[in-house]
Structure formats: structure tokens, C-alpha cells
């Protein structure tokens, strides 16, 4: 029994197994890439659906982990700095692969539209989180060449009620709610402006009124919506509040809090009217009016134990990138001293 366990362990720890498995993964991926267009997607689907692939992947992870531990046991005593650098790199890589696997195998997610006063429900446990506030974090005005302040050029904040109190969620990093393994990671996936429209008939009767969520941010993009039950559709685009010219460079300043839209009314592919939104647009006896603007956000909610591993793996890779130059410098310094000793003797 002990002998067979030893045999299995030595097989799992062998470098030959690593070589064969790397060759097998490469062959599988290349086969998918050569014979189908989306190899990576196909690879993920295989890994998610096939028990055999999962088993082989776990053996591969076990193999490289055992080999890393064996390497560190020897090398940390002999070349500690270089071993640490290699350990951080390979360890980080293993954690990313583990996180990738956990994510592919177990991830559950939802992408609800967040509106103040509503609630988002996690589909895996049916738990509801009330949305207390959606703060668009829009500045009074942005320049179209603006680089923004954070990771994103315009980052909204959504405040959610949890068991531990109110939590503010931005676009990045994601926030964990309800425990790292069983809980949910949340962040704002998309956000945008929602102009409040009012369409009136010739007699002044209001035919439609409400908010329309459009993707107009960052400024410059255009989006459209159709008026159900009518042949009309409307193309919206933010209109600059002013244009700054300096030499050959031109910048447009957009008022995001009180935006002005350039609206094109389309009927059957033909343009009926194109006007700015600061006054009613009249077409075919109807009038379109913009009475205000609010914001919208889509949350990305995921239950994914892989996130923590991938983040830890990336951090280890970054740390490895810091330690490696130190280790290399140390090796060079040792070599130089060694040679100097030889020449002097």
C-alpha cells in the first residue's frame, strides 16, 4: 500500500509528466485553434463540461505544485533569493491556473439593472440586496480628451444595503459581500445616461413618457431607441456645450449633469429631423421633448472562488518581478567576487 502510494506520488511529481501534460495541452489548444475559430472559448467549454479534462487539469496542477515545493525545499537553502523569485513566479502562475479552473468550473453570475429603491437578487441563494443610491459621479463637464481620475474616465457608485450595513460599490475593484467563498462579488459593469423623454401628439396629449437607458458615455458615442408601436426611432448623441480650439487641436467640452443631446429622428431609414434637445423636436405632427436626465447602472454580480486566487496569483507575479532583478544582481555580484578571488589567488 505504502509502495503504491509512493509510486503514485513519484509519478505525480515527475518532470516527465509535466512535459507530457504541457505537450498534451499545447496539442489540444493548437488543434482547436487550427480547426475552429474560437479556440480559447472552445477550450473553456471543454474544461467546464468534461470530467476527464477537469481530472487531467487537476493532475497537472498537482504535478507543478509538487515540483515547485520540491524545488523550493532544495533551492531555498542554496540560492534563497533566486528560489524566492522563481517561487513567486511559478507560485503565482499556479494560483492563476487554479483560480482559472475554479472560475470555469463553479462561477455563477448575474447582471441586473440597478435602480434606486429596487433590489438585486443573487440567483444562487435568492438573497436580495436593496439599492439605496446610484450616484453617477458625473462631473459638471468633461473634455472629450479627458483622461479621468481613476481607472475609468467616469465611474459611478452604487450603494447597496447588506447585512453588515451599506456598502458602496464602484466599477473597480469588485467588492465582496457576504463572505469570500459563499458570498457575492459585485461591481458596476456599465453605466450611462438615461434621458427622460416625453412624446406628445398634435393635440398636446402625452403619448409616452419615461426614462430611456442609453450608452452615450464616454462622450462621442451614439445610441438609439425605437418608440414601440410606431415607425420612429431616435438616435441620441451628446452635443458639446462648447468647443475649445488651440492651434490645430480641438477639444469639446460636454455638460454631463445637464446634457444637451443631438437627436436624429428616423422613420423607415429616412431622417425626418435632426435637432438639439434644448427645445421640443417636431416631426410628423408629434413632438419629442427631453424633460430631464438621470443615470443608470448595470451591476455585475458573481459567486466565484477563483477571483481571490487569480488576484493573489497576479500579486505574486508582480512581487516576482520585483525580486527577480535583485536575485539576478546578487548572482552577478557573487560571480564577480568569485572570479576576483580566483584571479587574486
Amino acid at each position: 500500500m505504502k509502495a503504491s502510494v509512493g509510486k503514485i506520488f513519484s509519478l505525480v511529481a515527475s518532470d516527465r509528466l509535466t512535459v507530457w501534460l504541457v505537450a498534451a495541452w499545447t496539442l489540444l489548444y493548437v488543434t482547436l485553434a487550427v480547426w475552429s475559430a474560437e479556440a480559447f472559448t472552445a477550450f473553456i467549454h471543454l474544461l467546464a463540461a468534461s470530467f476527464v479534462f477537469k481530472a487531467v487539469y487537476i493532475v497537472f496542477l498537482a504535478n507543478i505544485t509538487v515540483r515547485l515545493i520540491a524545488y523550493l525545499r532544495v533551492s531555498l537553502r542554496v540560492r534563497p533569493l533566486m528560489a524566492a523569485a522563481n517561487g513567486l513566479f511559478v507560485g503565482g502562475f499556479i494560483l492563476i491556473l487554479l483560480g482559472f479552473f475554479l472560475s470555469v468550473a463553479t462561477k455563477q453570475m448575474a447582471q441586473p439593472l440597478a435602480g434606486e429603491g429596487s433590489a438585486v437578487v443573487t440567483p444562487w441563494d435568492g438573497k436580495a440586496y436593496g439599492i439605496e443610491r446610484v450616484a453617477p459621479s458625473l462631473r459638471d463637464s468633461v473634455l472629450d480628451i479627458d483622461d479621468g481620475d481613476g481607472l475609468f474616465s467616469l465611474e459611478p457608485k452604487v450603494t447597496i444595503a447588506t447585512d453588515d450595513g451599506a456598502v458602496e460599490i464602484g466599477a473597480f475593484p469588485p467588492v465582496n459581500v457576504g463572505g469570500y467563498l459563499g458570498g457575492a462579488w459585485m461591481h458596476v459593469l456599465q453605466c450611462g445616461l438615461a434621458p427622460v423623454i416625453r412624446v406628445s401628439g398634435a393635440d398636446g396629449n402625452v403619448m409616452r413618457e419615461g426614462r430611456v437607458a442609453l450608452r452615450l458615455l464616454p462622450p462621442g458615442g451614439s445610441d438609439r431607441f425605437s418608440l414601440d408601436g410606431t415607425p420612429y426611432s431616435f438616435v441620441f448623441k451628446l452635443s458639446p456645450s462648447r468647443v475649445i480650439k488651440k492651434g490645430n487641436t480641438e477639444g469639446r467640452v460636454y455638460d454631463i449633469v445637464r446634457p444637451v443631446y443631438e437627436i436624429t429622428v428616423v422613420k423607415g431609414g429616412e431622417e425626418l429631423a435632426r435637432e438639439l434637445s434644448n427645445r421640443p423636436i417636431v416631426f410628423d405632427g408629434l413632438a419629442l421633448e427631453i424633460t430631464g436626465t438621470s443615470s443608470w447602472a448595470i451591476l455585475d454580480i458573481a459567486r466565484d472562488p477563483g477571483i481571490a486566487f487569480v488576484v493573489a496569483g497576479l500579486a505574486m507575479l508582480a512581487a516576482g518581478g520585483v525580486v527577480l532583478p535583485l536575485a539576478v544582481a546578487r548572482v552577478f555580484s557573487m560571480l564577480t567576487r568569485h572570479r576576483a578571488g580566483e584571479y587574486n589567488s
Binding site: 480559447f40 483560480g99 475609468f152 456599465q190
Partner: peptide
Amino acid sequence: LTMKFVHDVVHHVFSIILVPDHPLLRVT
């Protein structure tokens, strides 16, 4: 093929750690 692989891996890592789609990302 390599370019596509690198693109897909980077994109997938971003989607795992919940970095939003790119229209809002900063230039840098």
C-alpha cells in the same frame, strides 16, 4: 494565432477579476 491567444487570455483574466468592459477604461 499567438496574438489571438494572448488577447483571449488577457481578456479572460480581466473578466475573472471583474474589470468592466472597455468603453469606460482610461486611456492609460
